[in-house]
Design a protein around this nucleic acid. Structure first.
Lengths: 195, 195
DNA sequence: AGTTTAACTGAACAAGTGTTCAAATCAAAC
DNA sequence: GTTTGATTTGAACACTTGTTCAGTTAAACT
């Protein structure tokens, strides 16, 4: 077996995913051709098929990778015990994680409709697992009386929508620091669900 | 001049726009072909060009129409004088208007990247005009002391992102009535910006 | 009845699509 | 220095794309 080391394959693979990520985020999955991705990597279109069975799977793997990263990073957090501390931890974690990955986040929300049904189901399952964390925090807070939330599921959607909005305006090196952004959103989230 | 009455032109035009709206919302602008739109209307692709100079303009006109409707409907509202009442009016108006037009809203947010620069600029101008209404309410409320908002522009983005989230889960005839949805979001908005 | 013309068809155009694959290329392993 | 097999090329495939336009249809006017 020749070229197990020094092979281009462990270099080209990531470069393809990176190029696809950027192009999908900028122009949309359907508007980007395999030849464009190949061109960005400096390779012919046929070479892409050593790394993905098809274009659809390339998109799916990007989304799945992103959501797995999200869930793994979330699992590594050590939130406190009481609901208020956990909500603050969740809010700040979400802002931080999403601000660092605008392209992944954009794709994971905008390209759902381009997933084949089976892939869509799996992506939705992962996203749901993440949202359930927030919903559980809200329910616990209602139980203990610190939160006044009439419908925890809907409020979960509302809070996540608000937090995701950060990516519509935030640009690295902008007017506000990460800490200021975190503090601003945490202030709004805390007040919006407090009793 | 023949066929000024009984002509199909005043029927086909709206049907084309309606078909394009639904298809763009479901599959995305780039993923929908002119032949698909024509097929949905029951006409050949060439006939579409009696109603739009090109595919791009079809998208642009849909977005511009939607945002003009939005601004016109907003201008017809008679909010009260004090910031709290105006904020409640804005919130309920926004929810109501957006819930009734899921396809238009979806397109107006998701297909911005498919607009040519000149068209993009104009759409952004209209959206900005709408957002400025909310920002003004927030600034007035800060001045009069009823709102505690550190950065009115960013909070405007946050509130609008939260409200737009309604379209990710709301379905007509679902568990909650329109009034319940309005009340739920208004409760969150009010608390999140209150002093 | 005959004329006019808006509305539409259907075929054509050049360019681009995702994907396949035999052949060429290359660097590591022997 | 040759073998080996992973990696890439480049051409080809069948099909779709947005758009144009000469020609057909049919309703409304004189």
């Amino acid at each position: 077996m020749a070229r197990t080391q020094g092979s281009h394959s462990d270099i080209t693979g990531p470069r393809i995913r990176a190029a696809a990520l950027g192009l999908f985020a900028r122009h949309g999955f359907a508007a980007v051709s395999m030849r464009q991705i190949a061109g960005a990597v400096g390779v012919q279109a046929g070479a892409l098929y050593n790394y993905t069975p098809d274009k659809q799977t390339l998109l799916y793997e990007l989304m799945r990778g992103h959501l797995n990263d999200l869930l793994a990073a979330r699992a590594a957090e050590m939130p406190g015990a009481d609901p208020m501390a956990r909500l603050e931890n969740f809010t700040r974690f979400h802002i931080r994680f999403h601000i660092e990955r605008p392209d992944e986040v954009f794709i994971a929300y905008m390209e759902l409709r381009n997933l084949e049904p089976a892939n869509f189901t799996e992506i939705e399952r992962l996203r749901r697992a993440y949202e359930d964390e927030l919903e559980t925090i809200l329910r616990d807070g209602v139980k203990s009386g610190v939160f006044a939330v009439s419908d925890p599921r809907i409020v979960t959607y509302a809070v996540i929508a608000m937090l995701n909005g950060v990516n519509t305006w935030y640009r690295a090196g902008g007017r506000l620091s990460l800490e200021e952004v975190e503090a601003l959103y945490w202030d709004m989230v805390r007040k919006s669900v407090s009793a």
